[in-house]
Amino acid sequence: MKAIVCHEFAPVDRLRYEDVQPRALRAGEVRIAVHAAGVNFPDSLKAEGQHQIKPPLPWIPGSETGGIVTEVAPGVTRHKVGDRVMGVSGADGGGFAQQIVLPQERAFALPASMSFAQAAAVPVVYGTSLYALKQRARMQPGESLLVLGAAGGVGLATVQLGKAMGARVIAAASTPAKRELALQHGADHAVDYTLPDWREQVKALTGGKGVDVVYDPVGGDAFDEAVRAVGWMGRYLVIGFTAGRIPTLKVNMPLVKGYDLVGVRYDVWRDGWWSEARANLEQVLAWCAEGRLQPLVSARYPLERAVEAMRSITGRQVTGKVVLEMA
């Protein structure tokens, strides 16, 4: 099979598109013919050796796939050959390939209305966001939610999930087109977080109280302002640092306002508490089937152009999700 393979921790340009021998199934596993694979910011970090997890080499990136079951091992009861499924890998990846082998519990039956590309757009961003809002922020209906980077893949997922969970959503994005996209996907308000007074707009939208929950995958300058827009007993969710700069915080701010600064490490929680993580993803798929969530695939690349797809994300050139599609 063809795959994208990392042989050394180096710039993603060093990834290779090459032939790889598929491995045999073990008991309880399924083989999936991959039709689409989601591309995420951490794929590049891992390939370049800049992530907390450094997978053993050689390594195939990709942790979310959509495809068809082509083979099942003894002991498999959840799936059969021909099933349309969404696959969720662990830290071992494997998604940027024409085939992937997964434990049966890591594959999910797809709603009839969901495409393979949409399936590949779900596990990381919706999984991260639901864990952040539900388990980490304990967000309640009627609370206010500020989403930074609201037009990106994880940002749009959070906007949609926030509305599905009954929150009042304020989307922060850098351009009129991105703000309009967030509004189209359910945000109640949108603000330009490149303006010097944008946090005052957020406070005004909350009647001067500040927001209950902030979802921040951006860091950098946006963090410096957003931490001042949190209300009493709020929760500030630290997701990542796509802006490049890891910010610092004077801890008198959360002290004075009594708010929590909460780290969100989804991959570790997902793999360590899989039964809860699986239940979250089943909820996401149910909401997709009901039309309450609509994964947006904004860019598609063939497998052999995986590096270009990864660069589009690290360069912050895209909205929604980027996927690889197999010929």
Results as ranks from 00 to 15, higher is better:
G49C: 10
R31N: 00
D221Y: 14
P123F: 04
V5L: 02
Q21D: 09
C6F: 03
V30E: 03
V69W: 01
G231H: 06
T175D: 02
V154R: 02
L146S: 09
V124T: 15
L303H: 05
P254E: 03
V20Y: 01
N252I: 12
E325A: 04
D212S: 14
W273C: 08
A3S: 12
I4S: 01
Y17W: 07
Y215D: 03
A299N: 11
I239Y: 00
G82N: 14
R138A: 15
T65V: 15
A229N: 07
A109C: 13
P176H: 00
H79C: 07
A177L: 01
Y266S: 04
V218P: 02
D216L: 00
A299E: 15
V34D: 02
L255A: 15
D192E: 08
L183I: 01
C288T: 13
G75Y: 05
V284I: 07
G219K: 07
E290Y: 02
R199W: 04
G220K: 02
K178Y: 00
K203I: 01
G272L: 07
A107D: 00
F241K: 11
P56Y: 05
T248Y: 12
A306I: 06
E290W: 00
P74M: 10
G320M: 02
T248Q: 15
G149S: 04
V256Q: 15
T158I: 03
V85H: 04
R278Y: 01
G62N: 11
L255C: 13
G291R: 05
T206N: 02
A222P: 02
I60A: 00
S63H: 07
P196V: 09
R138P: 13
D224W: 09
G220D: 06
E64T: 04
E18L: 06
T128D: 07
P247H: 08
R278E: 13
H51C: 10
W198K: 07
G234C: 04
E8W: 09
S89Q: 15
I313T: 05
H79K: 09
A47Q: 07
E290T: 06
M326V: 13
R245M: 05
P11E: 03
G272V: 10
G240S: 10
R23H: 08
V72Q: 00
P247F: 05
A306R: 02
C288M: 12
S312W: 00
E29C: 03
G210P: 06
D13S: 15
G244Q: 12
R228A: 10
G258M: 06
R305M: 12
K163R: 11
Q140V: 14
A173H: 01
Q140T: 14
G320P: 01
V81Y: 13
T158G: 03
M1F: 06
Q99K: 11
A289T: 04
H7Q: 11
V297W: 01
L249V: 13
P302Q: 04
G82Q: 07
P61N: 09
V125D: 08
I100Y: 05
E71F: 08
K257L: 14
D224N: 13
R278W: 06
Y126R: 12
V213K: 06
V72T: 13
G142E: 08
G67S: 08
K203Q: 13
V307R: 12
C6P: 12
A151K: 03
V191W: 00
G66C: 04
V30A: 04
A204D: 12
Q99G: 10
V214E: 02
R292P: 07
K250F: 10
V122A: 07
I32S: 00
E29K: 01
V307Y: 01
I53S: 12
E180N: 01
